[in-house]
Amino acid sequence: MIKAGIIGGSGYTGGELIRLLLNHSETDIDFVYSTTRSGKLVSSAHQDLLGLTDLTFTGEVNLKVDVVFLCLGHGNSTKFLEENSFAVNTKIIDLSNDFRLQKDHTLSKKVFTYGLPELKKEEIKKSENIANPGCFATAIQLGLLPLAKAGLLNNEVHVNAVTGSTGAGVSLSSTSHFSWRNNNVSWYKPFTHQHLGEIGESLDSFGNPTGKLFFLPNRGNFTRGILATAYTKFEGSLDEAKKLFKGFYSDAVFTHISEEPIHLKQVVNTNHCHIHLHKHEDTLLVTSAIDNLIKGASGQAVQNMNLIFGFNESLGLQLKAGVF
């Protein structure tokens, strides 16, 4: 059994991470750190865990755990690691955007590997520290990586994606309030979303030219999931595109190519990504769907942990969606 610590366990990603680790046969949660809820039951913040655990939040950190997950707001992970020196053999998996870009991969001799298993599985297995990808970045990259590797992204790529309200985090804002979000849809951060940097670096990692990426994120009036549609010029046939994608993901445990159009209910509450391809004249439409809190955050973090410690990649992540 490996001992795990969670920093910032009162938010959505922290709650999902606790749920997954409680059901992971090779992991014991050593502590869940929270400055605002120290001494309170974990189930007081995550009511779905009532009866499943007697864990309480703590304000103390065990610096010698085997793995620590940072579920902090963007910009706070760097500060926390500068103030807390974990043991040399402690693996660090950060769920913020602090270390995702190449220019930010190193902090005090700690080198972070970008943790997208479908792209860097073998590198992750040898890594000490992981920068977990963003949720939008995960859905979009999984939809475009096969084309990038084949050198078929040399034209403009247009992406439109919608995410559930949990993508905005627990803290209330004017656009996450129920009376605003319900029966409503809107875009935000058009063409400037913070995940564009990591997406671009991954698509460029194959050394092939890539066209400009135009990304329009949308707020949906539901709680969980991301449905992303990307389209670009493609000279090949639909069958050729399917062969390309199936070949790229032939050893991927959680990414699957669907012959039928996909929808969010297929993947919500799972660590899976479903992809569908559609050809119209000279344009290829790629649709990808994930759960933003699991494959887009906590589930992918556990997947990375499994790879680092040599466990079965799907251990603790064999979750079923509810499509009805």
Score class of each variant (00 low, 15 high):
Lys3Leu: 12
Ile6Phe: 01
Gly9Trp: 04
Thr13Tyr: 11
Gly15Ser: 05
Leu20Val: 02
Ser25Asn: 14
Asp28Gln: 14
Arg37Lys: 13
Ser43Met: 01
Leu49Cys: 01
Thr53Gln: 00
Phe57Pro: 02
Phe57Gly: 02
Phe57Ser: 03
Phe57Gln: 01
Phe57Ile: 03
Glu60Leu: 10
Asn62Cys: 03
Leu63His: 11
Asp66Val: 04
Val68Gln: 00
Val68Asn: 00
Leu72Met: 09
His74Lys: 07
Asn76Met: 11
Phe80His: 08
Glu82Cys: 07
Val88Gln: 14
Asn89Val: 09
Asp94Tyr: 11
Ser96Thr: 13
Asn97Trp: 05
Asp98Asn: 10
Asp104Tyr: 13
Lys110Phe: 06
Thr113Glu: 15
Lys121Cys: 09
Glu123Lys: 15
Ile124Glu: 14
Asn129Arg: 05
Leu142Phe: 05
Gly143Asp: 04
Leu153Gln: 10
Asn155Pro: 10
Glu156Ser: 10
Glu156Asp: 13
Glu156Cys: 06
His158Arg: 09
Asn160Gly: 10
Ser165Arg: 14
Ser173Asp: 11
Ser174Ile: 12
Ser174Gln: 14
Thr175Phe: 15
His177Thr: 15
Trp180Leu: 11
Arg181Tyr: 12
Asn182Gly: 11
Gly200Ala: 07
Leu203Val: 06
Asp204Cys: 06
Ser205Gly: 09
Lys212Gly: 04
Asn218Arg: 09
Thr223Asn: 09
Ile226Phe: 05
Leu227Tyr: 11
Lys233Glu: 12
Asp239Glu: 15
Asp239Arg: 09
Leu244Phe: 00
Gly247Asn: 07
Phe248Gly: 00
Asp251Ala: 10
Asp251Asn: 15
Asn271Tyr: 07
His274Glu: 11
Asp282Gln: 14
Ala289Gln: 03
Asp291Cys: 10
Leu293Gly: 08
Ala297Phe: 02
Glu313Tyr: 08
Leu315Val: 09
Gly316Cys: 01
Lys320Ala: 14
Gly322Tyr: 10
Gly322Arg: 08
